[in-house]
Nucleic acid binder design. Structure first.
Lengths: 193, 193, 193, 193
DNA sequence: AACTAATCGAGACGGTACGTCTCGTCTTTTT
DNA sequence: AAAAAGACGAGACGTACCGTCTCGATTAGTT
């Protein structure tokens, strides 16, 4: 249900320009600094924006960074549809891992870490990132199940955990790379399930 | 050890006592506060210890907390040996999950998060926690491989990722419980691998 | 110089209603808060008026407060005329002190303080308050001088300072009351001059 | 009464150096800026001192400024003793007025104004400045009364108000100078009282 | 009756300073 | 020599107002 024909809010509307300046500034900061060194104060200064404006739109650094990430590239990882579960999975997991090894990974680690400390952010982070990716994968699996490649009673949620779990585990611990053999191994492991 | 007949030291050799006071204080703080609210300042005050003393022994809060955790309970999770890989795995994974759902989980999440921000701590955390658990599991798998329950060329490192990955993934995201069905599902999937 | 026969300006005229709402709101705020806690923001909200409207009419809080005060009571202190300088003075100084001890004093102190920080306001404050009262007193003295109660070369400006000075001094410092003995003492002191 | 033989407080003592840096910085700021433009933030930066250090010693700008003023020159105005009340008064009032027209006046005005807004500061200001000056003058008057130059029942407190009142009144309003004729006039009036 | 123009309310804007917090270091006294 | 206590410089935090701006709506007088 939308606010069909809703009155525009009274008062000066929020400045799209300011918002974009902030997101751009954050992206630049992320390229030159570690996530932990990014502060509200620094963002405000870099974006030429007042601190209250920042706080009016976002509650903390993590939310801004997340916005900058999601608005930047929503289409990084497409949903493959080759007709075969195995190749679909292989492509999807491969894209996911490649994306995470190319710079986004470090930020995602920081956001995941931040989510452990702030319940409010955790909720948004999980809804925006984790769940949306999970649902994409689940849709892929469902399609495959409809083709009969999976047993009808397969627990798709669980399969998703088995897929993303090891990826995040390696990403967060850095004890082993997210490379092609790893992608193949996960794919094979899920195919056996 | 006594100061048997020793000259009174020129210094003030109270260090062991101070260290224990710190660890005890941290344990108490962890029971009543969120990890994020624990500060060096707070620990020093709670332990009746000077801040420089803290910094002389540990570089940051995370290290103290980790010390307090490891010194407290090293024997939480035993290594089962029933002769069957499946039941060994089931017991081990079950113990792991139960331990993580009983309070330690929240602290482990925080430490894992902290490790994303501080490379120095990350190294210690992985060596002390992650790797030691991985090695335990690998030993269990090796024993089983020697019994012929696993193919000789099985990638034990990878199997360990497939086991711990989903557990951490659920722990960090909280989207699903670490319950008995989950334990059984992971066990089953690894048995098939 | 008037806008004699000027065209009425085009556009919506300024709202008399808004102005009165502001002054009323300020009076209410003054009753419940210290002067220092009154802000443009607060006045706007209390009066249900936009901030630009406020700034269109007044440059700062002090000016609004002064307006509210002057519009409220212009006739607090009458000019006595008993035929005797001493009794005129006694009545006038007495009225002044009574008015200042009954609530107006605290606001006058704040306005006088504000005038120390803002030259623009200082000018208005002195013209509206200080000088108008001084002129009243000088008129009273002149009348008396015409009757021969004062030497012809008496410095009336100086006498006014000798009268108002101690009153303000006690008001601002609060080290002693503006009571009847004080009124009599000042009167006597001036009579001797 | 001092803390005879008191234990020195434990911990690092307060840095005399920091305190002096602050007072020096404030004096420099006062020369180049209006009082109202001086902020805690600015003082901290100018003195190369942390803000908490400032707040540890003083509650607000006014207190720092007052400290800087009192520590700078305690001997500006001596207490004359010529043997004659009239010449003593004339010298004392003259010194007071000269001191107030030479730069200190503007700061004193600001401090007096500040005292109207902050009760805590008001108390300190009155004790440090107002009362100490009043007592000096009262002592002078008492000495004279002992010589029989004043009636025995003269209200010295009141005479002090009659002396300082007009001075402050002219200082705060700026409608007339604190010049030599003014000094003579006040002296003459008090002599008649 | 439609147009024009200045006002209104609301509230977001870029700023600045606030007073607090924690950091990691430094200095002193005490043991 | 090492302990506690705690002050230190630094700087981010989130908040409060400032005075300006940008809206849509309202309200006159002018076409």
């Amino acid at each position: 249900m939308d606010r069909h024909q809703a009155k525009p809010a009274p008062g000066r509307p929020r400045s799209q320009q300011a918002m974009e300046a902030v997101l751009t500034a954050v992206r630049q900061l992320l390229e030159t600094s570690a996530y932990k060194q990014i502060t509200m104060e620094g963002i405000a200064k870099a974006a030429g924006v007042g601190k209250p404006t920042l706080y009016r739109w976002w509650p903390n650094v993590a939310s801004i960074v997340m916005d900058a990430m999601t608005k930047q590239a929503r289409q990084d990882i497409g949903v493959p549809d080759t007709g075969s579960l195995e190749s679909d999975l292989h492509l999807y997991i491969g894209d996911t891992c490649r994306s995470l090894t190319q710079g986004a990974g470090s930020i995602m680690r920081s956001l995941m870490a931040e989510a452990q400390f702030d319940d409010g952010f955790a909720q948004i982070f999980r809804e925006s990132f984790i769940c949306s990716r999970r649902e994409t994968l689940i849709a892929l699996l469902k399609r495959s199940a409809a083709r009969g490649e999976l047993p009808k009673d397969a627990d798709l949620e669980l399969l998703t955990d088995l897929c993303y779990g090891p990826i995040w585990y390696r990403l967060l611990n850095g004890h082993a790379p997210l490379d092609e053999p790893f992608v193949q191994a996960i794919t094979a492991h899920i195919m056996r399930g």
